[in-house]
Design a protein around this nucleic acid. Structure first.
Lengths: 145, 145
DNA sequence: ATATATCCAAGTAAAGTAGTAGGGATTGGC
DNA sequence: GCCAATCCCTACTACTTTACTTGGATATAT
């Protein structure tokens, strides 16, 4: 019942990107340096975020990434699902594909369904913009001295 | 972000035990047969439930397991934590041990904390007795013909 | 051109999962 | 007392997943 590094690193990365998303595109290298992540690994995570339409890339020199939409329009749920796949504690409640055959007999399904809904509602209620605001706030308070 | 078979099988097993918990202790073999689980594997799960004080064992012939307390006093949270350990999406919010050093800088911690609280609140709100009642209900409706 | 970037596809060591296997300890019924 | 049923405990193992690393190809500002 753990989130993998994909979700953990990836969320930190997109928050970092959003914080530094001004005129210029933000290269992976600078995010990796600030967040102390492997550059090559982060590359793969950004690729997932791009495929999900959350970030856009600018290739070539002076290239990098920027948010594909406003930080207020991106939820933590969007980010985590892009990185981790379905946020679903057990497969038998999965939206897609092979559903459990014993579903009318199985009482525990009710439990998994409830957990699934709660997790998704929780992460969908948090917007990237909130984390960005909080992050900028902290940065400021550290630099005040 | 998946629950392992420990949690999935174990919850089914303790519900089954609770349903059949009358005069006699219920042996692992009969639970395994009804739930179609490996007897030897289930043994390990029952051992965890026992260590957590949720079930009690009766050794020797005609032995088996029974609930250590009333099904109304056992929550799904108790069961899942006994089987899976902390229901915690990331370690840095763990109650015990090595806490993340960057906790005052890290905005994502807020997210993990929120998920953790929600998951635990969800599973703590479901009592074993509810699942037992539901399970008996279904059994009855199947046997009615 | 060249340096700076993203992009794409494999490969890999370490850890975790889902069991299996072997044997020991208890106890009810004969 | 003996046997069968049962729980108990520890190890082992095949498989899968994770968390990267590696090697290169492609695009573009200067």
């Amino acid at each position: 019942m753990k989130l993998s590094t994909k979700g953990r690193y990836g969320l930190r990365a997109i928050v970092d990107l959003a914080v530094h998303d001004e005129e210029d595109a933000v290269p992976i290298g600078s995010i990796a340096a600030r967040q102390q992540l492997s550059e090559r690994y982060l590359e793969q995570l950004m690729s997932k975020l791009k495929n999900a339409g959350l970030v856009a890339s600018v290739r070539g020199a002076q290239g990098g990434y920027r948010l594909a939409k406003d930080a207020r329009e991106i939820t933590v749920g969007d980010v985590l699902r892009a990185l981790e796949g379905d946020l679903n504690p057990v497969m038998c409640t999965a939206a897609s594909g092979d559903v459990c055959k014993k579903e009318d007999v199985c009482v525990t399904k009710y439990v998994w369904e409830k957990i699934r809904k709660n997790i998704n509602a929780t992460v969908d209620a948090i917007r990237l913009a909130e984390l960005v605001a909080e992050s900028k706030q902290r940065e400021k308070s550290i630099c005040r001295e």
